[in-house]
Amino acid sequence: MMIDSQLKAVYDGKSGSDPEQQALVAQVTASMGVRGADDVLDGVCSIIYVFMKWLRMAHEAQGKDVIEYVVPSIVTSMTMMRRSVSPEAIPTMAGLLIAAGTGLSPSLWRRQYGDWMKTEMTPLEATAVLLAEHINHLTDDRDFATRLITQALTDADGSGDEDEE
């Protein structure tokens, strides 16, 4: 929902963050403990993985390499986001994209290098939003990335239902 909300703000031409949304995010973040924050980080990494998996399949169907066509575009976009993404965070986000693009879990890849740093939270969110926008642009459908995640969640929730019947 957070990614969808950010995309809608971009598409609607709104600049800056919505104060109400910032307050809601701050309230939710304050209410969750360390475990909850870790779950959110794993969730964002999972979304990045799903996006990169979809992009990898789409590019391979065209005989293209997802790393060659997607990672430079996302990195270039992040370098222009100087207020949100520090130059120091860009190599980490590029590594995360490459890991996901080669089929590795971004969460497991990141754990090799220690805990997430506070300065990496906004770049991580930006990476997920940029990937979603990239997918929406490729498909010429502003809601495609959101539906992709919704479908993945629906499939995950429904996977055990058949066994119970």
Rank of each mutant, 00 (worst) to 15 (best):
D4G: 09
K64C: 03
L7S: 07
R82T: 13
Q22A: 15
L7V: 11
E125M: 15
L104G: 03
S73Y: 04
F144D: 10
M121C: 05
R142L: 13
K8Q: 14
A89N: 07
L130K: 07
V129H: 06
L41R: 13
A89D: 08
R111C: 06
R142Y: 10
W54K: 14
R110H: 09
Q21P: 00
Y113V: 00
E162P: 05
D161I: 14
L130V: 07
I74C: 02
I98E: 13
I98H: 03
Y11C: 01
G33V: 10
A58Y: 07
H137M: 14
D140I: 11
A145N: 06
V25E: 13
D39R: 11
A26C: 02
I67M: 02
A58Q: 12
G160N: 12
D65L: 04
A30Y: 04
D140N: 15
M117G: 11
M121H: 07
G33A: 03
C45E: 11
V70D: 00
D38P: 02
L7A: 05
E133A: 15
A89L: 05
P123V: 00
S77D: 13
M57L: 14
K8L: 14
P91Q: 03
D18F: 05
Y69P: 00
A58W: 04
I74V: 12
Q151D: 13
K118G: 12
T146L: 05
A23P: 04
I48W: 00
I74A: 03
S77P: 02
A152R: 15
I90C: 06
D140E: 15
P19Q: 05
S159P: 00
D163T: 10
T139F: 03
Q62D: 09
H134Q: 11
R82F: 04
V129A: 03
H134K: 13
S31E: 11
S105V: 00
V70Y: 01
M1W: 00
A145F: 04
V25G: 09
R142C: 09
Y11K: 07
R56C: 06
R110C: 02
T76R: 12
S46M: 07
Q6S: 12
E88N: 08
V44P: 00
S159Y: 05
D143N: 10
P91G: 02
A132D: 04
G63Y: 08
A23E: 14
D42K: 14
P72I: 11
T79L: 06
P87N: 13
D18P: 07
Q112L: 10
A94Y: 00
G160P: 06
E125N: 15
T119Y: 01
C45F: 11
E162T: 09
T92S: 09
R82K: 14
I3G: 05
H59D: 13
D155C: 00
D12F: 06
M117I: 08
R35V: 15
M121I: 15
D42Q: 14
G114D: 03
S73I: 01
V75F: 03
S77H: 09
P87M: 11
W54D: 15
G63P: 07
Q21S: 09
A100R: 00
G160M: 12
C45V: 05
A156C: 07
F144K: 13
T146N: 11
Y113E: 05
D163S: 09
P19K: 07
L24C: 04
G95I: 08
V70M: 01
G114S: 06
Q151I: 12
L130T: 04
